[in-house]
Design a protein around this nucleic acid. Sequence first.
DNA 1: GCCCCAAACAACGA
DNA 2: CTCGTTGTTTGGGG
Lengths: 269, 269
Amino acid sequence: MPELPDLTVFAENLSKQVVREKVVKVVWHERGRLNVGADELSGALVGSSISEVERSGKETLFKMNNGNRLFVHLMLQGKFVLAPRQKTASFPIMTLAFEDGKTLTVQDPKAMVMISLNPSRDHEAPDALELNPELLKRLIGVKPRMLAKAFLIDQKIVRGIGNAYADEILWKAAISPRSVMGRLPEEAIDELVRAVHSVLNSAIEQLRRDHPAIIAGEIRDFLAVHNPSRKVSPTGHPIQVETISSKKTYFTDEQVLYPEKAVKHGATE
Amino acid sequence: MPELPDLTVFAENLSKQVVREKVVKVVWHERGRLNVGADELSGALVGSSISEVERSGKETLFKMNNGNRLFVHLMLQGKFVLAPRQKTASFPIMTLAFEDGKTLTVQDPKAMVMISLNPSRDHEAPDALELNPELLKRLIGVKPRMLAKAFLIDQKIVRGIGNAYADEILWKAAISPRSVMGRLPEEAIDELVRAVHSVLNSAIEQLRRDHPAIIAGEIRDFLAVHNPSRKVSPTGHPIQVETISSKKTYFTDEQVLYPEKAVKHGATE
DNA sequence: GCCCCAAACAACGA
DNA sequence: CTCGTTGTTTGGGG
């Protein structure tokens, strides 16, 4: 549920709380998904301490001072819970206990959370904040027929953008979610890259400012179009809601459609 | 282009002309597709004679008296050409020369013809004329969500039915081409099996009667609905033409739609 | 809302 | 109109 901006700020705030903490115990609660055995997980983490916490795509990456890397994907309902002392959070997936008594628990009532220790990430898609016009053009070249909406949220193409921010970015770039990527003119591609950065970065800044310690949840009340409480965009155009590429999509008629084939004059079928 | 009824009659008529003929030469004209080398093809056929010619799905099968089996799929524009003496047909793919001087040539201007010598046909789909209600139910059980139109023409499900006869069969069975196979009630399944046999067999009989020596081409002028020259079905209902499962489909409102989900009363979305 | 998988569907070339 | 391959979409389950 949280997307790139939320997860970025979560990582920053977790960082302040757990960097340099030494792991003394790892409990795997036999729920959720783990790419290795629970014993291997413990063996890799216990005795080492966290050197960095950062966001990568939609995952949170814990770098350990012994070189191990632990990726946590919160999926739909996962949450980080920090407790000053031993306190068992509800719906626990994994608990890290630190030397000073603090614990970090990943919890998820649906147990969909995915945790990966040192995964092999061979040909990984670029993170959304690494996009530039040349890179985007290359990605479009590989998947020229995809709709803009489907393209932006496909983690095998770009990592980090979810359903909500895809709508925000497309609105900002004035590109219809039904546009076919391969039909975007040069200027629209440039505009899209600018929108990716400006929408995500200003959301990050706003979250930092208004929620300086947040490590869980999602803040969406400031979104311009993907926002059920709004009827019109900031520029006053009515917000439409449709299912596009199987996703609930918010958009307005300010967004230009670049269709697969030019519509022929007088065509009926 | 020819479908099951045409191909059945072609095989019967070819049979009369080539059974017991001994192959003395095989020429592969280096066009079209062959599942073995040209030398292996010659080696298998030269010196043996044809013992039977029959139709299998949309292919014509030549059984040799040495056990070899040669399948010819004419695809869109392939044709059999029989010549009393050496005479090179245009667009040749493969020529069999017989001991008595006759030749059988497979020709195709687009070179799409597919020829297979002793192919491994492991879990082959049943031929359309082998269908019975129990078998059809079993096939539906494997692909319950497919549309009737797509189902009937899928050669991995049933072999022999193409775009034109699928429409004829569905009209005869009074089943809409947009019906979902898994929703057909028992009676409709029975009716569909009956329609498969009656439509195909009466077309075969008509072709035998009116074109007693035909080995190429296609006769479609008697089709009831898949027939551009008709405006209404034999029972007087206007024929509609739409693209269904990417195929041009002819049907009428006599055909009952069995949809995926029941339409809710008053539903809007 | 998320990811994965499988099945269905569409587009292209031969 | 045909088949095979490939890429994209859709639906269900966790």
